[in-house]
């Protein structure tokens, strides 16, 4: 296994990024995502107005994969319509299930988050990468 292709510099740096790690002043949705078996725990806050994810942020603890995945996700969905954000979550989760081949243009939509594609080869860690995206999908369901 080429571990460096999974823990890329981008993932390592992003896992420590504080850019999106904060509380929103007036979130319209706040949802907790947990992986009890490994202790990953994030709280995702969204500020949705007129069908647009105007702002998003998170707090929590977890492994580098869960933290990087959350941070990249927020960077990606901020400013998007809720419909687009849902679609992105579907694409990301499909990528983790190896349902999208490498090089597929659908992955371009994910931007830097596509760097987590290698996690699909680590069955024990897929849930770490998926946590925040499931939480996002759930939060958006409640928004509608």
């Amino acid at each position: 296994m080429d571990i460096e292709s999974i823990y890329t510099e981008l993932i390592a740096e992003e896992s420590r990024s504080t850019e999106h790690r904060r509380h929103l002043e007036a979130p319209t949705a706040a949802l907790k995502g947990r992986n009890p078996s490994c202790g990953d725990e994030i709280t995702l806050e969204l500020s949705v107005r007129d069908g647009i994810v105007e702002d998003a942020a998170f707090t929590g603890v977890g492994c580098a994969i869960s933290q990087a995945s959350t941070s990249l996700m927020i960077g990606l969905v901020k400013g998007q319509t809720t419909g687009k954000a849902k679609k992105l979550a579907e694409t990301f989760l499909a990528m983790l299930k190896s349902e999208i081949p490498a090089g597929d243009p659908a992955l371009d939509e994910l931007g830097d988050a596509a760097a987590l594609q290698g996690v699909a080869r680590l069955p024990a860690r897929v849930k770490c990468a998926a946590l925040s995206w499931h939480t996002l999908a759930e939060a958006l369901e409640k928004e509608v």
């Binding site: 490994c38 492994c63 994969i65």
Partner: peptide, 13 residues
């Protein structure tokens, strides 16, 4: 500075 699950995954490799 490293989460235990990341330690275990890299050790596994």
């Amino acid at each position: 500075g490293v989460h235990p699950h990341d330690v275990a995954t890299i050790l596994d490799s």
